[in-house]
Design a protein around this nucleic acid. Structure first.
Length: 322
DNA sequence: AACCGACCCAACCGCCGCTTA
DNA sequence: CTAAGCGGCGGTTGGGTCGGT
């Protein structure tokens, strides 16, 4: 691990620290404190630059450092903190006693980022990833390519396309539901990792965070056409002219209408229920079909894993003040 | 057993902001 | 006001380790 020992032009040693060097550094700091880091190596008798000494001390030798695997609770907290603070590793580390920013950064880059990706969440925004929309794009292009060889099969292709669009809609909705862990009977607080307390802190409108399937207001109600039409120019570009018909537009328009009810909200909430089924989808799809525990439990349970419910209002208020 | 690629993580690098002269 | 010094931070690197073939 680390790097091969080397030295720079000034003759100062670089690379991994030896136990002897560690001892010298620890002894010196115990006796004198670190004082000026720049002056320290010379005073302590170390052939290192001050920066290297400081890093070694703060990331490894400090007595209050907690080593070993991160607990589930710590991971959950880091994810939640990252949703609020972004890549402010130092600030995040400030909320995890005994953990260093470097350690947290490494954990994020090696584990947590992947975890979020697997959950279909963008590790930067903590929102559901939009790349699942590519699915339909690919499908359309595939069908368009097929059409090149099947000029006389227009009707069949159109039917295929229609079916595929419906299929893609189902897949899209399925993905969304998986990401949200939606379950008609579930407590919708679970869809918001911060719980209602943080929403209150942030001044979020709770009515926008309710379950669309529980008979209450929904993410966006049908009476609140808070949709942002998703234009898919690239798809149209990829289609033969005759397929860029109104009918296709209709289909695409209907299937790509994505609600963005939370776009006006601060970009803070993990897995915001920003996507909802449009009216047409609601008419054609029974969401219950996608909410069976067997099909959604994995993601749902994962979300459960990331709920960190012990956080208090005061805690988040404190966080937001940073 | 040897090879190889993915993963892990300590350490380095460069930049930024604060302090001080 | 400005420049130099310094500490701190986030991004990146690269060598060791692990697991699969």
């Amino acid at each position: 691990m680390g790097r091969a020992p080397s030295s720079d032009e000034s003759g100062l040693k670089k690379g991994p620290w030896t136990p002897e060097e560690d001892n010298i550094l620890v002894d010196y700091i115990h006796k004198h404190g670190h004082g000026s880091w720049r002056a320290l190596p010379k005073l302590a008798g170390l052939n290192r630059c001050g920066k290297s000494c400081r890093l070694r001390w703060t990331n490894y030798l400090r007595p209050d450092i907690k080593r070993g695997k991160f607990s589930q609770e710590e991971e959950q907290l880091i994810i939640n903190l990252h949703a609020v603070l972004g890549n402010k590793w130092s600030a995040i580390a400030g909320h995890l006693p005994g953990r260093t920013d470097n350690e947290i950064k490494n954990l994020w880059n090696t584990h947590l980022k992947k975890k979020l990706l697997q959950m279909g969440l963008d590790p930067v925004t903590h929102r559901p990833r939009s790349d699942h929309l590519d699915l339909l794009s690919s499908l359309q292009q595939l069908l368009a390519a097929t059409d090149i060889f099947t000029n006389s099969w227009d009707i069949n292709v159109a039917r295929l396309q229609s079916d595929a669009t419906e299929l893609a809609k189902l897949q899209l909705l399925h993905n969304i539901l998986q990401v949200l862990g939606a379950n008609p009977s579930s407590n919708m607080d679970l869809l918001n990792p911060f719980g209602p307390s943080l929403n209150e802190v942030l001044g979020l409108d709770q009515s926008k965070l309710q379950n669309p399937y529980n008979g209450s207001t929904g993410f966006v109600s049908q009476n609140q056409p808070n949709f942002q039409s998703f234009e898919a120019p690239s798809q149209q570009q990829g289609l033969p002219n005759h397929m860029k018909s109104e009918k296709v537009d209709e289909q695409l328009g209907a299937s790509y209408s994505l609600p963005t009810p939370l776009d006006s909200l601060p970009n803070l909430v993990s897995a915001s229920p920003e996507c909802s089924a449009g009216k047409e989808m609601e008419n054609k799809v029974n969401p219950n079909e996608f909410c069976e525990p067997s099909s959604t439990s994995t993601t749902f349970e994962m979300w459960g894993d990331f709920m960190y419910e012990e956080v208090t209002d005061a805690y988040w208020k404190d966080l937001m003040e940073q």
